[in-house]
């Protein structure tokens, strides 16, 4: 009964909407520190952020993801996010099953923090996002980050863990594209229902789209 009540009212939606809204602000702050990002036209900066925000949040959240119990444990056990918390925010297993699989795979790469940060920057500076105008400039910035990442792995990532590591990291970016699409599909359903879209934040509505407007 409690599950049904939780589900129908999406009891976790307000909290997760706030968490995602806060995270989007952090992604924007991070993007502004990427060399060259601020030199892009404002419209391209906006296109890149809107299309990559959810992917960077999924990447960033891997730090708190734990293989022990397949949850995002942020600090003490009071701040532990389980799959059930995300379903009670309106998402279903079509997203969560591949998302957990993605988190497990990423965790097992045991990335250095430098590699993790570079991967998020490379994810943001993807020239193939729909609506990008100056794809050549975005591509040149991404290429530079990719070269830095490959050099870092060669010089600083010793031992067996580094074998094919760059290729595995790029594969994670591909996985994120399909997670992004599934998230968008489920978000669209959610945002069509006024009783749920009213619980989202202005920034979430702006970044993920506000069907109502």
């Amino acid at each position: 009964a409690s599950m049904n009540i939780g589900f129908s009212q999406l009891s976790m939606l307000p909290h997760l909407a706030d968490l995602v809204s806060y995270s989007i602000q952090k992604v924007i702050g991070f993007a502004k520190m990427i060399p060259g990002f601020r030199d892009l036209a404002a419209d391209d900066q906006i296109v890149l952020l809107k299309s990559s925000a959810i992917e960077v949040i999924m990447l960033r959240s891997n730090q708190s993801f734990t293989l022990e119990d397949m949850t995002w444990t942020c600090g003490s056990d009071d701040f532990k996010y389980r799959i059930s918390d995300v379903t009670q925010a309106g998402h279903n297993m079509d997203l969560l099953e591949p998302l957990v699989k993605f988190q497990v795979g990423l965790k097992k790469l045991n990335l250095h923090e430098e590699e993790h940060v570079l991967l998020m920057a490379i994810c943001i500076l993807s020239p193939d996002r729909p609506g990008v105008q100056d794809t050549a400039l975005v591509e040149s910035l991404q290429d530079r980050l990719s070269e830095i990442l490959q050099s870092y792995i060669r010089c600083r990532h010793p031992g067996p863990g580094s074998r094919l590591l760059y290729a595995k990291m790029i594969q994670k970016l591909t996985d994120l594209r399909s997670l992004n699409e599934e998230h968008s599909r489920q978000y669209r359903c959610l945002s069509f229902q006024p009783q749920h879209s009213m619980q989202l934040t202005p920034l979430v509505l702006e970044v993920f789209g506000n069907e109502i407007s």
């Binding site: 924007i28 702006e206 970044v207």
Partner: peptide
């Protein structure tokens, strides 16, 4: 209309992060 679009994103991009 275009200008009004993404007003929050533009603000967060332009504001000076401490």
């Amino acid at each position: 209309k275009k200008k009004e679009n993404n007003a929050l994103l533009r603000y967060l991009l332009d504001k000076d992060d401490v």
